[in-house]
Each structure stands twice: as structure tokens, then as C-alpha cells.
């Protein structure tokens, strides 16, 4: 996919964010009630939007293979559930994952560019991207240099995103803003605008490695940035909230928000993803609950 890189945007062109307004509007999405068939279809849709993730020092080949099986067939015996959108792993595990998901619709995403801190020279970080793509990754999740952003070196962020996009080649690029470290919604909005101009295919909230991860308001700010970018340029950009979305109820609130801000076009796994590790089982347990009328137990679902 060829993506046009737009010029570096001025910070003053990003609108200021009304913190109270955004938080109240996000809160209002939580009041929607999804029941019965609607709930069931939303739960199944959420499963297909999962980036099933393992990013631990303890990841082993066996664990990654196991996770890939789960991504391909989340609920064994029920082919109407899943498959998940992708598995998300460290670059060293890409080859294992690619082999494990071969022949399925599940894509392989790799985190790169010195995930999660991004504290390394650009040259090595780009090398990591190229290595992951060379191993067969379909998608790259990069982190931006938050330290440089907070120092005001915005141009450096724009340049590193553009350089990563180029290094990705055919792979789709997700840009992790790590919103928990950007401190204000204004920063989040500008970082989103800049990443999209530099060629991001997806913008993503968090690494999942800092205490403040995805929240509804911060996701709303990013969705609005995507909406404005789409109006201005006609290019769709995807959204991936990640970290802290651990239960099905919350996941459905995100879907409601995407539907109401960006519309039904974004409600596919080409344009919306959940980055999560524990959300999968809660979605599956809710699906089983809808089918059987019994509240479920984690004892009956695989843990990895």
C-alpha cells in the first residue's frame, strides 16, 4: 500500500482539546445498553478485532505457538467465533508466529524500534523494523520517542515515523504514542496529527508497559483526529487502543464510540483493533454466557 507523506503539520493547526468536554462525552458512551443479538454480534465483532498479544521477557516458542492457535480458533468447537485479527509479538518471535498462523487469516504484528521505551539511535531502531519485516511481519507497531516529544523536538518524531514507514515497505505501520506519558490531551492530539501526516496506517494509544494505558477519553481524542484527517485528506487511518481493556463490557463501549465518532466504515479489523491479552477470555466467557445463560469460570478456558 502506497501512502502519501504529507508535510510536517504546525502545532497551531491542531485544535486545543477541551478536557472536561472530552471526558464527559466519553462517559456518555458508557450509558448505552447492548442486549441480546446486538450484544452477541458486538462480542463476536470484538473477537475479530483482537491483536492477541504477548510481550514478555519470558515469551518462548511454545507460548507463541499456543497463542497463535488461540488466535486462529478462539473458541474450539465454534467456528463462528474469530479468528482474531493478528498476533502481536517481539521481532524474535515473528518467524515462529508466521509459521504457526500460516494458511489462516490471522496476521502477524511485531513491535519494533526499541519497544517499549524507544530510547536508542534511529539507525538501530530502523534496523529492528527491517529485521521484523524480513522475518515476515505483516504489521509493525513502533513507539515514538516521548522524551524528544516532551522536549519539543516535534520534527524528530515526524521524521522517525516517516523513516519507519519507509522501512516497513508493504507492512502496515502502527504508531504507539504512549499517551500515558504525553501528559495532556493537546499533546495526544498533536502527536496523532503528526503521525498520520508522516504516514501512519494506525495510531495506537499505549505499549501496555506504563501504568496509564488506554482510556476512553484519550481514544476519543485520537478518533477525532482520525475523523478530521479523513475529512481533510480522504485517507482512512486505523485506531488501536491497547492496555487496560480487560473486560468485554469496556470493549463494547469502545465499539460504540468508534461507531458514533467515525461511523460503520471503521468497524472492521482493517481499521480498528484492540491490543489486549486478558480481554480475549472475557469476551469468550461472555459469548458462552449469552449462549448458555450461565455465568462462566476461567477454569474452562485456556489461559494462553
Amino acid at each position: 500500500m502506497k501512502t502519501e507523506v504529507l508535510p510536517f503539520p504546525a502545532r497551531r493547526d491542531s485544535p486545543a482539546i477541551d478536557q472536561v468536554g472530552v471526558e464527559e462525552r466519553a462517559q456518555r458512551f458508557c450509558a448505552r445498553s447492548l442486549k441480546k443479538e446486538t450484544k452477541m454480534s458486538a462480542l463476536k465483532l470484538a473477537v475479530t478485532m483482537l491483536d492477541v498479544t504477548t510481550l514478555e521477557g519470558a515469551d518462548s516458542v511454545g507460548k507463541v505457538r499456543q497463542m497463535c492457535q488461540k488466535a486462529m480458533r478462539p473458541l474450539p468447537g465454534d467456528p463462528s467465533v474469530g479468528p482474531a485479527a493478528a498476533v502481536c509479538v517481539y521481532p524474535r518471535m515473528v518467524k515462529t508466529a508466521v509459521k504457526a498462523v500460516e494458511g489462516s487469516k490471522v496476521r502477524v504484528a511485531a513491535v519494533a524500534t526499541q519497544f517499549p521505551s524507544g530510547q536508542m539511535r534511529l539507525k538501530e531502531r530502523l534496523g529492528e523494523v527491517k529485521y521484523a519485516v524480513g522475518e515476515g511481519a505483516d504489521e509493525i507497531d513502533m513507539v515514538i520517542s516521548r522524551g524528544q516529544f516532551l522536549q519539543g523536538e516535534y520534527r524528530a518524531i515526524y521524521d522517525e515515523v516517516a523513516a519507519c514507514k519507509e522501512a516497513c515497505g508493504e507492512a502496515r505501520l502502527k504508531v504507539i504514542l504512549e499517551t500515558g506519558e504525553l501528559t495532556t490531551y493537546d499533546n495526544v492530539r498533536f502527536a496523532s496529527d503528526m503521525s498520520m501526516a508522516a504516514g501512519a496506517d494506525f495510531i495506537k494509544t499505549s505499549t501496555g508497559k506504563v501504568p496509564i494505558a488506554a482510556t476512553l477519553p484519550v481514544t476519543l481524542v485520537m478518533l477525532q483526529a482520525i475523523e478530521d484527517f479523513y475529512e481533510r485528506t480522504g485517507r482512512m487511518v486505523g485506531m488501536k487502543p491497547a492496555g487496560g481493556i480487560s473486560n468485554a463490557k469496556l470493549a463494547l463501549q469502545y465499539l460504540v464510540m468508534v461507531r458514533e465518532v467515525l461511523g460503520p466504515k471503521w468497524l472492521t479489523n482493517d481499521w480498528f483493533r484492540f491490543g489486549a491479552s486478558s480481554l480475549t477470555n472475557d469476551l469468550l466467557m461472555q459469548i458462552r454466557k449469552q449462549e448458555t445463560g450461565r455465568y462462566q469460570s476461567g477454569d474452562y478456558f485456556s489461559q494462553d
Binding site: 445463560g293 455465568y295 462462566q296 477454569d299 474452562y300
Partner: peptide, 8 residues
């Protein structure tokens, strides 16, 4: 009945 049904 809910007490009796709960899987956990």
C-alpha cells in the same frame, strides 16, 4: 437458580 448455575 442463579446460585446453582454459576460455573465459577
Amino acid at each position: 437458580p442463579e446460585f446453582a448455575k454459576h460455573m465459577d
